[in-house]
Amino acid sequence: MSKQIKQLGDDVWKTKVEKVNSELFTLTYGSIVAQLCRDFNNNYEEVNAQTYKMGYNIGVRLIDEFLQKTQLSRCSSFRDTAEIVSKVGFKMFLNIVPNITNWTSDMTTFSLILTENPLADFVELPDDGKAVKELWYSNILCGVLRGALEMVQLDCEVGFISDVLRGDETTELRVRLVQVLKDEIPAGEE
């Protein structure tokens, strides 16, 4: 199963996805975050919230693109969801495959370790002493995941718990399934 998923991610990446220059992408995102920092007077909490919101709005739209290109149907377990998010989702849109670890025993929470992060290629956080403690630079990713999963009726909490930009060892994104929105699953599904 895991192999098939990886294969699917590779195939979609190779044959169906439009590519753009990664620097254009990285610099665009960088200038957005920098502008937000200026707009909110380095109130990093607010910047996090804004990038999260932007991500959410992207996620709720992007999910259909993802489903159309991958032809996937609903996952049967949250474990499958994690595999798909990492090996197909991240692969397809960012060409990275984060490692899945740190499952809790009740299988509702897992971590994605981003060994590379195209959003943060050239980034150093401002050395005002505050940014390294408060700013989650790549917070847009959390929003995207949150929005996309919500549209397939998985109510999740998504957030960073560490980031190499802050001097941490790894960049770790935590995803917790709050509930499956059973009432909202469209009629006609098993």
């Binding site: 159309q68 149907s73 006609g188 599904e189």
Partner: peptide, 17 residues
């Protein structure tokens, strides 16, 4: 439902409707 499972067309979540 079982028959549809076998014949299911991908990307279509309309299995039983």
């Amino acid at each position: 439902v079982h028959n549809y499972q076998k014949a299911k067309t991908l990307a279509n979540s309309n299995r039983t409707g």
